[in-house]
Amino acid sequence: MPRLPQRKSFDIIRLALHGCTNRPFYHIVLTKNTRPRDAPPFEQLGTFDSMPNIHNEKLVSLDIERIKYHLANNVALSKPVEKLLGLGGLLPVFPMSYTIAKRNRKKMEAATNDTEEHLQEEDTEKSQ
């Protein structure tokens, strides 16, 4: 029986999830796309802490020199990494960030409208 074609293998910069239960921590790594998520990578290019610290900051460290070198060598990027690099200013802002921002703003507006209506109802009840 002929061997099934293997999926195409290329270099990619993506997030590898480390940390422990209820405490995610990501390494930004250069690896082959076919390799397991947490397998030892070719190179670690940074970190991303998705849990905000006491100052309400999410910390992202990027090895800019090496990332630019790999980008120049035509490496692929996963969507979360593109989003991070866009937010950081190394690349243009990722379109999905705009979409998510818009959705969040809508949600917030809806929430504030609801509370306002609720407060107005309370006021009318009190006056009655």
Binding site: P52, N56, E57, K58, L59, V60, S61, L62, L84, L87, G88, G89, S97, Y98, I100, A101, K102, N104, R105, M108
Partner: peptide, 10 residues
């Protein structure tokens, strides 16, 4: 509004 916290890039 893209996120609730600031992102710090180092």
């Amino acid at each position: 509004g893209f996120d609730k916290s600031n992102y710090v890039f180092v």
